[in-house]
Design a protein around this nucleic acid. Structure first.
Lengths: 348, 348
DNA sequence: ATGAAAGCGCTAACAT
DNA sequence: ATGTTAGCGCTTTCAT
């Protein structure tokens, strides 16, 4: 039923030349007289000819396309990263196709995709991949170049580009401690990518470094959503000795904390300091503006593409795992613990 | 240099069967004895065989992939729409590949993409396309099914799914007029998609319907960016008789207006009412929360996919142009003109 | 139940 | 400068 698309054969016939000549005329490779070239192109245009990319690729060439698989394109971080990739890829005269595999964790669907993907791309970038071990092994055996981004589980042979979540979290919490905070809570995200676990590790390290004890009740489980952050904060703020600061595994949850604080008539940052992670757009829109940790996404995109291109071009890869330090973005949601001290300072 | 990927021939050889048998064993179509099937699959697994999607498709089948071309994936509206498409496409057991053509307006690049795309997809959805006339004509002649979304120029034969910008804008402005506003300004966006022009038409219509004169100075040119909205608002608020309300072609510019007002110590909505367009995430984060117009993106996504699938399946299309009414989201940035009246009301 | 042949649309490699 | 041949990896069709 599908309209039959025009092929080179028809163009060639119409132009009265061989298929090969038509091919040359269209691609511009090899010798063709200006005359015939024009004739062929005219015929092509008249027929509405468009070369079939698949056939061309099947002759063994590169597609000049890099695929990127993401889990949730609506995530601001993922989106920002994809934008960075889009820019980066252009430098190599490649194109980027995005596949949004949102929430599809089952083995079968994943395999279907990997098959779909196979052959269409010169290489593949997985951003914040959520995958089963078995699927990961399959990827490791795959012939086509692959780079993982922000995949924090240690057990893969594939090249990984990632932000340094551990040190970022440690710095964030150390910063709070330097401001006099001692009862510091942490709200976890989901476990899929391993990022939350790294951030928790950093939190624990900073507390240990300062010789501070962590009350079990200070560690809450969230789901990275604003709602879950709000609920976790409600529980934390209801504690007899409530925390004076909360470090959240991402910004959305920190914003949820802000809502919870407001509902209890607590002032941020005077009564409660908050630090998020990711520097999402909303972080600089909410009032008070959110202090947060930011991964250097453009640099990471650059590294990911560079690493992938090396593999596509058959050059040796550089390092198996490249890690980038995060940047602390200090805004309005954090302050020294003694509100009184602070007010005094202001008067001075 | 690229690692040679394993083909069916090698699998067949290893399993000691013909290629055809191997094919049947892998795809599950046709008769194969359980015995050989198992043997083939084992061989495939051992070799790390992955079927080549291209070759399979080239035999004339469908790819079961729908491509969507967007101009700016980082736009919240576009992103939301793509997410809606992702969901919708699943219902037809299709996959969605996204191509972010951000800012690439030149003819040559566009053509390269359309060629790149050709053959890989069963159909193509262009969201908020920015294209030259010539490129549009080329698409119209194209053999593969295409649907345009929110393409407001009237002159195309391709099926179009769009939000009703004209009536939405008219409703927005009529609402302001009903609240007593008479000096209402409008800030345009860029002209590419024709959406801003439609919104301007609605604005003018509402003003005309109410018999209100439009001062030339009330119409400002923006670029859809927050910054441009802020600058336009600065000019508007500097007028001798400044407008009491501003209708913006999108939310970002309205937020820019809010910033400009704050800088002048003007209260929104008491001193200045603001209406945006799109209901971007930030619209409900800023304080005061922004009143805005929202296109029914999920419905539109549904219509776009449905229309495209009809064409892919060779069924007759329904309508050439489907238009959806927008919804007004009333929040905190709009109020009746008489601030005094309002306060009195509050007391009561 | 299995195999052989043909061909999808295109282009490298070799003629002419 | 143009044409001929062959083949990419797979599946459809027709044997066996």
């Amino acid at each position: 039923m599908k309209k039959q698309s025009v092929t080179l054969v028809q163009v060639a016939k119409k132009a009265g030349v061989s298929v090969m000549t038509a091919s040359r005329a269209m691609s511009g490779e090899g010798y063709v007289s200006e005359d015939t070239k024009a004739r062929v192109q005219e015929a092509a245009k008249a027929l509405g000819y468009a070369p079939n990319a698949l056939a061309r690729v099947m002759k063994g060439g590169r597609t000049n396309v890099i695929g990127v698989v993401v889990n949730d394109l609506s995530s601001v971080v993922v989106n920002a990263f994809v934008s960075a990739l889009t820019e980066e890829v252009r430098k190599y005269e490649m194109d980027l196709f995005i596949y949004n595999s949102i929430g599809q964790l089952d083995e079968q669907t994943q395999r279907r995709h990997s098959q779909l993907l196979h052959g269409l791309w010169d290489g593949l970038i997985y951003v914040l991949p959520r995958m089963t071990d078995e699927y990961l092994h399959e990827l490791e055996k795959s012939a086509s170049p692959i780079v993982l981004v922000n995949f924090c589980r240690r057990d893969t042979t594939l090249p990984v580009v990632q932000g340094d979540n551990f040190n970022a979290a440690r710095d964030a919490v150390a910063g709070l401690i330097a401001q006099g905070h001692q009862r510091i809570a942490f709200i976890k995200g989901t476990h899929w990518t391993g990022q939350s676990a790294e951030r928790e590790r950093g939190y624990r390290q900073a507390m240990a470094d300062a010789g501070l004890h962590i009350d079990k009740q200070w560690i809450e489980q969230g789901t990275y959503s604003e709602q879950s952050g709000q609920e976790a904060a409600q529980r934390l703020l209801a504690l007899a000795e409530r925390p004076t600061a909360i470090f959240c595994a991402n910004d959305e949850m920190a914003i949820g904390c802000m809502n919870a604080a407001r509902a209890l008539n607590l002032q941020v940052p005077d009564d409660l300091s908050l630090i998020g992670f990711d520097d999402v757009t909303a972080a600089s829109i909410v009032r008070p503006q959110l202090t947060t940790m930011r991964h250097p996404l453009p640099l990471m995109a650059q590294a990911a593409v560079q690493e992938l291109m090396r593999r596509i071009l058959g050059q040796p890869g550089t390092r198996q795992r490249v890690e980038f330090p995060a940047e602390m973005v200090v805004r309005e949601s954090t302050a020294p613990i003694a509100g009184i001290t602070k007010r005094r300072t202001r008067k001075a």
